[in-house]
Structures are given as C-alpha cells and as structure tokens.
C-alpha cells in the first residue's frame, strides 16, 4: 500500500532544535486547556457573587479547596500517561488520613517519622497495584478497583470504623480530648500574611516534582514511551515492568500526600474520606487534555485542569448555585472539554 505523501517539508533546520511557533501552540492541548480555564474565569467576572470573585480570599480558598484533588490528579497523570488508570487514590487517601491521625494524635509520633511512614504506606499500595498489573498482566481498571476496596477496608480496620479524632476513649470508658498535633495546625495554616494556604503550596510543590519527573528525567520519557507504544518501548530497552510499578507507586505517594493534607484540614482521620475523589481526579486529568489512551499529555495540563474544576466549583458556590446543579454542570463540562481536545488527535 502506498504511504501518504510527504507533507510539505523542507530539509531540516538542523542547527536549531527549535520549538514550534505560536501558531502550532494555538492548536495544542495546553492552549485548549488554558482557554477552558479563561472561560471559567470569565464566567466568574460576569457572575461575581456580589463582588466576592474580586476578593483575594475567594481565590485563596478556591486554590485550597482544589489542592487535595490536584494532588490526586498529579499522581493520576503518571498512570494515565502509561495508558493505565488508578481507581484506588481516594481509598489510599482515606487510609493514609487514618494512619496519620493515629500516629500523630494517639501515638504522638514525631511528624518526621509519621510523614515518611505515611508516604511509604501510599507507595506500597501503589507498588502492589503496579506489580500485579505489570507482572500478572491484569487490567489496571480491575487491579486498582480491587485496591480501592482493599485500602478502604484496611482504613476501616485500623480505625475500628470510626473517625480518628482528638476525642479519645480512655480504658475506663470515659472520653478525653487530646491536643490537635502541631503538624496538623502547620499544614492547615496560611502563609504570607494569611494570603496563601500551606496546602496550596504543597500542591504547587507536587506539580513541580511531577513536572521534573515527566519532562526532565529519563523516568518520564519511559512513561510516555510505554503509554505511546508499549511493545516498541520494550524493544528499545525500556524496563516496562519497573516503570509501571513506578507510575503506580507515584500515584500512591501523591495520594498519601493528599491524605496527610486531608487529615490535617479535618483534624481527624475519616475512614470514609475521599469516596469518589478518584473520579474527580480522572476528570481533572481529562479536562486538562491528557489522553486516556496514554502517551500524550503532561502535568501542566493537569494544573490547568485542577484550576478549571476548582474555579468552576467556587464560582458556582459563591453564586449560591445548589450542589445538584453544580454536579450536572460539571458533567456537561467534562464532555465539552473532551470534545474540544479531540479536535486535534
């Protein structure tokens, strides 16, 4: 069969490995994702909730509320780039929130021990999923669905099914209130004259780390290669199994970070926390424009997606739109965003 003829191409400008011009950029995924965010912000200026939209505190809160979802979405981005999916992030968040609360409130561990232990717990959950997916070749959807159920069960087991809070039952049956651990207050505080939440800064840090991994490290290149064409990647010497375990471990670690923040903000570890968060995380990644088929996308898109979803929610809430309508609108926006993205693929 004859191949498609060459697109008009000139001999390569070999001395410059230059980036494509702004015209190319205009039709890129980042441009679409940015346009979606601007559109949402424009709605904000039109329906500003009696001027609430023009107050920095509104933006600060929008950022803070979106941050936990954003952290989950960072982890999800790695997995989706390898053409996988991770349904367990919400449950891992709850498991870590419970574990962090027990360690910090009940056992009074130092945060220098408790935080690494919690991150390791998240990483272990992810690595377990990744290992089963890569070695036993079971579909990611199934494996992470199982991990979602398992981690939820584990969270309920170690918490005894109750919220782990500062209210502690003594052996004689009476209740006492422990102090809120210092680390909880620190994570839940604001910096720069009350103008930015620590949780938002943690989210930004997650984005930066993810960007480095995806855009600057060999690891990231391998993740894209696996998602784009797994067999070709394997034949080019990419350690496919190890990299898949890595992708799910990263998703686990970012879920754990989200779990730490969740526990600190609620000042308790709720084994029922994070139900349905995996779907929000997937929606964020998809709205950003990272392709569920794998191999394409990036963390910048996920950042834009997080802001879009976060602002949408905030703008609707300052305008006192009831939650029922907000959910329906979010559903519509997901479809519109994906249609816009598909234009170019």
């Amino acid at each position: 069969m004859p191949e498609t003829p060459d697109k008009p191409a000139q001999p390569l400008a070999l001395d410059r490995a230059e980036r494509p011009g702004w015209r190319t950029w205009l039709s890129s995924s980042s441009a679409t994702a940015l346009a979606a965010l601007c559109f949402v912000l424009l709605i904000g200026t039109l329906f500003s909730g009696d001027g609430a939209f023009y107050k920095w505190n509104t933006h600060r809160d929008a950022l803070r509320q979106a941050s936990v979802y954003g952290m989950l979405a960072c982890g999800m981005t790695f997995v989706i780039i390898t053409a996988g999916i991770d349904l367990s992030v919400g449950s891992v968040l709850a498991l870590v929130a419970v574990a962090f609360s027990i360690l910090s409130i009940h056992l009074s561990w130092s945060p220098w021990l408790a935080i690494p232990a919690c991150l390791a717990l998240g990483a272990t959950c992810g690595a377990a999923s990744g290992a089963v997916i890569a070695r036993l070749r079971i579909q990611p959807f199934i494996v992470t669905l199982a991990m979602m159920v398992f981690a939820r069960g584990l969270a309920k087991t170690i918490s005894g099914g109750r919220k782990v809070s500062t209210a502690m039952q003594l052996p004689d049956g009476s209740w006492t209130a422990a102090d809120v651990p210092h680390v909880f207050r620190a994570i839940d505080s604001r910096l720069l004259g009350d103008n930015i939440s620590v949780v938002s800064l943690i989210f930004i840090l997650c984005v930066v780390i993810s960007w480095i991994i995806l855009a600057r490290l060999r690891w990231g290149r391998y993740l894209y290669a696996i998602g784009g064409n797994e067999e070709a990647a394997r034949l080019s010497g990419v350690p496919v199994t190890i990299m898949k375990v890595l992708a799910y471990s990263l998703a686990g670690i970012f879920s754990a970070i989200a779990g730490l923040c969740q526990a600190a903000q609620e000042q308790q570890g709720d084994p029922e926390a994070g139900i349905g968060y995996e779907l929000t995380a997937i929606a964020i990644v998809v709205i950003g424009g990272t392709n569920l088929m794998g191999g394409r996308g990036g963390i910048g898109l996920t950042l834009l997606g997080t802001l879009t979803i976060g602002y949408l929610d905030k703008i609707l809430s300052i305008n006192a739109v009831p939650e029922a309508s907000r959910l329906m609108l979010t559903g519509v926006i997901i479809i519109v965003a994906v249609l816009l993205q598909r234009r170019k693929d």
Partner: peptide, 21 residues
C-alpha cells in the same frame, strides 16, 4: 507502526529512546 515508533513523541525523543542510559 506496531513495534517501532512511539506515536505521541517527537523526533528527538523517538531517536534517543534506546540510548537514554
């Protein structure tokens, strides 16, 4: 198509995939 190229990646990334170490 099936076992050679990585479709979403650019020429540079495709070229250097096997020599990244």
């Amino acid at each position: 198509k099936r076992t050679g190229l990585i479709p979403g990646m650019d020429i540079i990334a495709n070229t250097t995939l096997a020599s990244l170490p």
